[in-house]
Simulated assay, not measured.
Amino acid sequence: MRLKDKVIIVTGSTTGIGKAIAKRCVAEGAKVVLHGLEGFLGEEVLDEIGAENAVFHQEDISVEACPERLVKLAVDHFGKLDAVVNNAAWVIQSNIENTDRAFLQKVLDINAVSPFLLIQAALPELAKNQGCVLNIGSVNAWSGEPNLLAYSISKGALMTLTRNLGDSLMRDQGIRVNQINPGWVLTEREKERKRDHGLSETWFEDLPKMYAPAGRILWPEEIAAACVYWLSDEAGPISGQVVDLEQYPMIGRNAPKDTSTIH
């Protein structure tokens, strides 16, 4: 029970990585504020982990004052707030030709500005308990894919936010801020996206070694397991760190022999 009695907000926790994080937090003894866009999915997660362990808030994270409402819900329902997991994100394809100002602003609002605003709203409560923030980024933060331009830009911004606040908030208020950058993860939405791209129902069962040296891609539960350390007291004073979670190095990788692409 590495998170016993901690109260944690997990944004975007009705599916995929966020859902896995919320479930693992509860399994480790925490109480969780669930968040997402779809009410029926939130209720499903709530039923699965138990209403005594969580409360659900349905709202677009980029809506005005949503961060304040999430913090208030945590305090009103559980009496305190120990940690924030900024997981909610809009994964959307775009490139230099079709990314206009309004679209880029919307992606940034959801993926970078909203996490900042939630941290800002949570500061007074986190400071009381010397709490922590865990931002869920992406390996695309390092440069990204050409067809994920706006998304990649937003994750780069989030990574800079993590490093900046990880220093200043630890020094000034004892609040740790860290980030994990998941690689290719087999979420429900990823399965849907690849099917929409014309791949088969079982596309993930036969992947090129270039993209999946282990023969499979990551599972949400594996990302969630890594989150426990950063949310627990075991992390001590470590702050301002960004850790990639992928099955090959992002920098200095061996030159590929197979240039075929699926990802």
Rank of each mutant, 00 (worst) to 15 (best):
R2L: 07
L3G: 00
L3R: 02
K4C: 01
D5V: 02
K6M: 05
I9H: 00
T11P: 04
T11V: 13
T15Y: 06
I17L: 01
K19N: 05
K19F: 00
I21T: 07
I21D: 00
R24M: 04
C25Y: 03
V32P: 00
E38Y: 15
G39N: 13
G42A: 01
E43R: 08
E44P: 08
V45C: 03
L46G: 02
A51C: 04
E52M: 06
V55D: 00
V55W: 02
H57G: 08
H57Y: 10
H57L: 15
Q58E: 11
Q58I: 13
D60Q: 15
S62E: 11
E64C: 12
A65I: 04
C66P: 11
C66N: 15
P67Q: 08
R69I: 02
D76K: 15
G79K: 12
G79F: 13
K80L: 04
L81G: 04
D82F: 00
A83F: 02
V84D: 00
V84I: 13
V85P: 02
N87L: 01
N87W: 02
A88Q: 04
A88W: 03
A88F: 07
W90R: 15
W90P: 03
I92V: 13
N95W: 11
N95R: 09
Q105L: 09
K106H: 14
V107T: 08
N111L: 11
N111G: 06
N111I: 03
I119Y: 02
A121Y: 04
A122N: 07
E125Y: 09
L126Q: 06
G131C: 05
S138I: 05
S143I: 09
L149S: 09
A150W: 10
A150D: 11
Y151T: 00
Y151V: 00
Y151C: 00
Y151F: 12
K155F: 01
A157D: 00
M159Y: 03
L161T: 12
T162R: 02
T162W: 01
T162P: 07
N164C: 12
N164P: 06
G166M: 10
L169N: 06
M170L: 15
R171T: 11
Q173E: 11
R176M: 10
G183Q: 08
W184Q: 05
T187R: 08
T187N: 07
R189T: 13
R189Q: 15
R189A: 14
R189S: 14
E190M: 15
E192V: 15
R193E: 09
R193C: 09
K194G: 05
K194Q: 15
H197L: 15
H197P: 12
L199R: 12
W203Y: 09
W203G: 05
E205T: 11
L207Q: 04
P213R: 09
A214E: 07
G215T: 12
A226C: 09
L231E: 04
A235N: 06
G236D: 06
P237D: 02
E246Q: 13
Y248E: 11
M250H: 13
I251W: 14
I251G: 03
G252Y: 14
G252S: 12
A255T: 14
K257G: 10
T259S: 11
T259W: 14
I262E: 01
I262Q: 12
